[in-house]
Computed example of a mutant assay.
Amino acid sequence: MKAEYINPFLESAKIVIEQMIQIRPATGHLGVKDVKFVENYIWIQIGLNGQMNGDIVFGLSEQVAMKIISAMMGGYVISEIDEMGRSAISELGNMISGNASTILFNQGIRVDITPPKVLHSAQSAGFATQKALTIPLIMDGIGELDIQVLIAS
């Protein structure tokens, strides 16, 4: 697993988050860890096909997701993640991945992305635990968004 696989997603996430919620995220430490679904967590899963095959998974706690959704909706306070909230957080993952695929294309790597799937812990039964290259983005006053790249080839 190569560290450069995660860089386009990291670069894109910083840009998109700054545009969408006006916060410049800090970068945590790169590592490899098991992707495990835990309670009160949301996962945005996007498939990668082409010269890179696998998944990009964005993981965040429900509390962090609500703060991001609220910021995306102009500060409207939300207390639960409804259909509109799932759509907003899904679109965030889609925008990050779309921009990252453009960065990869400009580096000579062709990759297509699948539409995002938003998963809560209970919905993740079909997702096997596997190792991922991971890096957290730390958003001041909001929390962390984990970027996890699972590349098959």
Rank of each mutant, 00 (worst) to 15 (best):
S79L: 08
G59D: 08
Q130G: 11
S124Y: 10
I113D: 03
R86S: 08
M66Q: 08
F127G: 12
G126T: 12
Q22Y: 12
K14P: 05
L92Q: 00
L48K: 02
P136Q: 13
E83L: 00
Q22N: 10
S90T: 00
G28D: 05
I17D: 00
M20R: 10
A71P: 07
I21S: 04
M66G: 03
L137A: 03
Q45M: 09
S153D: 15
G126S: 12
I56P: 01
T102R: 03
G108T: 05
R24L: 15
M73A: 14
F105K: 10
M52G: 00
K117C: 06
E91Y: 04
E144I: 08
N106V: 10
A122F: 13
W43I: 06
L104F: 03
M66H: 05
V111Y: 01
T134K: 07
Q45W: 04
E91N: 02
A132G: 14
M139F: 10
T134P: 06
S124L: 09
K36I: 15
S97L: 01
K36T: 13
R110H: 14
I23C: 08
I113L: 09
N94D: 07
A71Y: 04
V35T: 08
S12P: 06
H29C: 11
I69F: 09
L92R: 00
W43H: 11
I135T: 12
E39K: 15
N99W: 05
I42W: 03
I78M: 07
K14Y: 06
L119I: 13
L104W: 06
